[in-house]
Computed example of a mutant assay.
Amino acid sequence: MRPTLSGIDEALADAGGVDAPRERAARLRTLLARELEHGATELGHPRSGYEHPVVVAVAARADGLVAVAPVQPGLRADPDAVEERAWLLAAALLGALVESSTAGELTAGAFDGHLALHVAGADADAELVPLAFEEQVAPIDRLRARALAFPAAVLEDVTDLRAPIGAGHPLRVALEVARLGGRPADPASLAEHEDAVLAVLEASQPAISRPHDDPDPSRRVARRILQRLDGMGKWGGYHTDFSHLARGFAGNDRALADEVGEALLLSGLLAEKPSVGQRHVFLNPRRAADIRGLIERGDLPADLTLP
């Protein structure tokens, strides 16, 4: 049985839902602020939203859908700004927005200290988002959350909407996964669409260098591994099974990729997230400069010893 919310859904329905008059917006904003603070606290717990679900909000504007989640707005610039469950909540919300619109340009900003997402598009229907979100959020472990559709006036104070920083930002990856019909908060769906998403993202940015042409075999493999992880936004919120590092390599390069992966972990360019029966790895945001230097120019950090 789904836990009930305390007041906000009743108040929203009483006000008229998405058609509520502007004079009811202030009261709804106050209630939403409480829910967002509750959600931000819940996401820091081992189990989130079990007694009182985490709430995300959505509204339709003339230029598309805008939504708010109890997640740090710094995610737009720094994928390491949020913990994994908060990131997956944002990814699920983005997936629901794409599913409920024509999914144009993505921007992110802030609303009362929380993450705001805007997906441009015509004929967007906010009332479709709650049902889509229910399916998108289902794969997230130890989280119960729901989406509520509000009148546009409630979310009109969203500020500083700008594109996520970096061509491989996890939000951009989530957007492309959702555009392909996948669920960006579901690791299985992400893996299914990984090659197609990577092709889209690589095509959208100029080629700074060619790791494939590096004459040194170990360095070439290291650069290609890091380039692929960067292209898929594997900066913490998204991570991948260590065994996947060898994907795309053939012959002797497959075994070399495993050795190079261990060296990248030992140097700290990659970090490891323990998982049940698996080793999951991701790019270390604190080593972003070294990672970019190796990908783009082949510069080897002093603490990296390749096989």
Rank of each mutant, 00 (worst) to 15 (best):
E192N: 12
L269H: 00
L300R: 15
L117F: 07
R220T: 07
L266R: 15
L294N: 02
D63Q: 14
A257H: 04
M232D: 01
A153Q: 13
Q72W: 04
L97Y: 04
A147M: 05
P217Y: 10
E84Y: 04
H280Y: 12
E194M: 07
G298Y: 07
D186N: 13
L65F: 10
L180C: 10
R27F: 06
L265H: 02
N284C: 01
A25Y: 05
L97S: 03
L171I: 06
E202G: 08
S101E: 04
Q136N: 10
L294F: 04
R224C: 12
L266D: 15
L143W: 03
V281L: 04
R219K: 15
L198G: 04
L106S: 03
A20W: 01
E35K: 06
V98Q: 04
I8T: 10
V276P: 09
H38V: 08
D123L: 09
S48L: 03
L43D: 00
A67W: 01
A11P: 10
G268T: 00
V137M: 09
L65A: 07
L106A: 04
G16W: 12
R223T: 05
P70I: 05
A20M: 08
V82G: 00
A222H: 03
L294V: 07
G237S: 08
G298W: 06
D14I: 10
H239W: 13
A77S: 14
R27M: 09
A91H: 03
G248F: 08
L201Y: 03
R29T: 09
A124D: 03
L131F: 13
H244P: 00
D290W: 00
L171G: 01
W235S: 00
L131D: 15
S101A: 11
G261D: 09
V137F: 07
